[in-house]
């Protein structure tokens, strides 16, 4: 995209320690967005038997990163940071809010997005970010809210997207550890093993064109749909 090429020269590419502090806070499991309540369909995949050990959990999360919501969220986050002006940023926020594979993945994205906006406005006040949130009341996806916050803090897009996807993957790993169940050390092996996938997904997100964005993970959508009627559920997605 021509606009992004132009912006890329204007955006800082070196992260400061202050940027690093923001990213650590905003992607921490302690950041109060309720991430731990979402499994992104893993709960249904475990019930089905398709996810049953560390290897199948890692394969599921790799698919989310390469071919599923991770790719979409990464691209939207990158585009939000690179948005040339408020109008472009608003269009990305609207697209992100409308990008809804299923009812539960939409809840996962928007509930976290709206919570992220509230806590970030309160704890890391920024006039530009507050105005952005005011233009999209309760209509924010997690990726675009996070991307907008990074944009107003001038955090480099590659670091921001990498942090976002790392947190997304770690959260799904944590859900898998509880659901399969796996030991904590096995969970950390899954997290470490996902590093190349997160790096590749970050690069793919930075290169993506929003008009041609797409997923290749209908099985994950089907698990998410099945989760809506699953009898025993610990997770909201």
């Amino acid at each position: 995209m021509a606009t992004r090429m132009i912006m890329a020269t204007a955006i800082t590419t070196t992260m400061t320690t202050e940027d690093f502090a923001r990213l650590l806070a905003w992607t921490s499991p302690a950041y109060p967005v309720g991430a731990y309540t979402y499994s992104h369909g893993i709960e249904a995949a475990v019930e089905d038997g398709a996810v049953c050990d560390a290897a199948t959990l890692a394969a599921y999360i790799r698919t989310v990163l390469h071919d599923g919501a991770g790719h979409i969220d990464g691209a939207l986050c990158a585009a939000a940071i690179a948005a040339v002006d408020d109008a472009a940023l608003d269009a990305i926020a609207e697209l992100a809010f409308a990008w809804r594979g299923t009812a539960e993945t939409a809840l996962e994205s928007t509930a976290q997005g709206n919570a992220f906006a509230l806590v970030t406005m309160a704890a890391w006040p920024d006039a530009g970010f507050a105005a952005f949130c005011a233009r999209h009341p309760k209509r924010l996806a997690h990726a675009s809210a996070f991307g907008a916050a990074c944009r107003f803090a001038a955090i480099p897009p590659r670091d921001a997207v990498f942090a976002y996807l790392t947190a997304f993957a770690a959260n799904l790993t944590s859900a898998g550890v509880r659901l399969v169940p796996l030991g904590q050390t096995d969970g950390q092996r899954v997290t470490a093993g996902l590093l190349p996938a997160i790096t590749a997904a970050t690069e793919a997100a930075l290169a993506a064109d929003l008009d041609d964005l797409g997923t290749a993970s209908p099985m994950i959508d089907l698990f998410s749909m099945r989760h809506e009627t699953q009898y025993t559920r610990l997770f909201r997605s």
Binding site: T63, S217, P218
Partner: peptide, 18 residues
């Protein structure tokens, strides 16, 4: 908004893809 992107078609064989 939704989209399918199969490019290249490696995801067709992926058990969590197609």
């Amino acid at each position: 908004a939704d989209g399918v992107a199969v490019d290249p078609p490696r995801a067709l064989g992926n058990r969590f893809g197609f």
